Amino acid sequence: MKDHEILERVSRGDEAALDYLYKKYYKMMTRIVLNNSGTEDEAKDVFQDALLVFWQKAISGNLVLTSKISTFIYSICLNLWRKELDRKSRNSGEMVEASVFQDHERQEKIKIINDCIDQLGETCRKILTYHYFDGLSMQDIAEKLDFANTDTAKTKKYKCKKKLDMMIKRNYTSSDFLD
């Protein structure tokens, strides 16, 4: 099944589509917890909670996917497990080793941003990638994209960044984005 079919079926209350997601992504999603100081039972709980969040958002009609379903569920799992680690840390007074977890979190943020940038269109994708990922100056960007001048490049970058910000805010909550 393709993601748009799954989302449509889940939003209509089709539990078979949810079962499909469970079977398809179980190992990948539970690995997040298992690789970050968690047990098999905790991994199952986190994944089931993440699917419940996905289910509720889909049924409400407020879910507009701008990335793959797997990416969306992955970010929910990461966030839920991070909250659980924080809770454990507070309750036990111990510091939980989080470097691997933080790397996963950082990679997921980058993936979400890249997925959104890809949806903005070719010009915005190039401008934002050149500026934020490649570190090019506005002068270099203007030359590469054959803009009239640096001011044109700056204006376009500003508008593209605004569109990206709006897309992320519209499609992700701060908990989804793991702020």
Results as ranks from 00 to 15, higher is better:
T71Y: 08
S75F: 02
L85K: 06
G38I: 04
G135I: 02
N91I: 10
E94N: 14
D45F: 01
R106N: 13
G61F: 07
S75V: 03
D49H: 09
L80V: 10
V64E: 13
H131M: 04
Q56W: 02
F47H: 05
T71H: 05
Y132F: 14
L63A: 05
S60R: 03
S89W: 06
D115T: 09
V33W: 01
V64D: 09
Y74H: 14
A50G: 02
Y132W: 10
K126M: 12
L51N: 00
R31A: 12
D41A: 11
A43L: 05
K111R: 15
V100M: 07
K109V: 10
M28D: 13
R106C: 06
S70Y: 07
E108Q: 14
K57M: 11
D103H: 12
R106A: 14
Q107T: 12
C116Y: 05
L78V: 10
L85E: 08
S89Q: 13
K68I: 06
M28A: 12
L51S: 02
T39L: 08
F54W: 03
E97I: 12
E105V: 13
F101V: 05
E105L: 14
T129Y: 04
T39C: 09
E94M: 15
E42L: 01
S70P: 03
L65Y: 06
L65K: 03
M28W: 04
L51H: 06
L51R: 00
N36L: 04
N62T: 11
Q107N: 15
S89I: 08
D134E: 15
V96W: 07
I117T: 13
M95I: 13
E108W: 05
M28Q: 12
D49P: 00
N91G: 10
V64C: 06
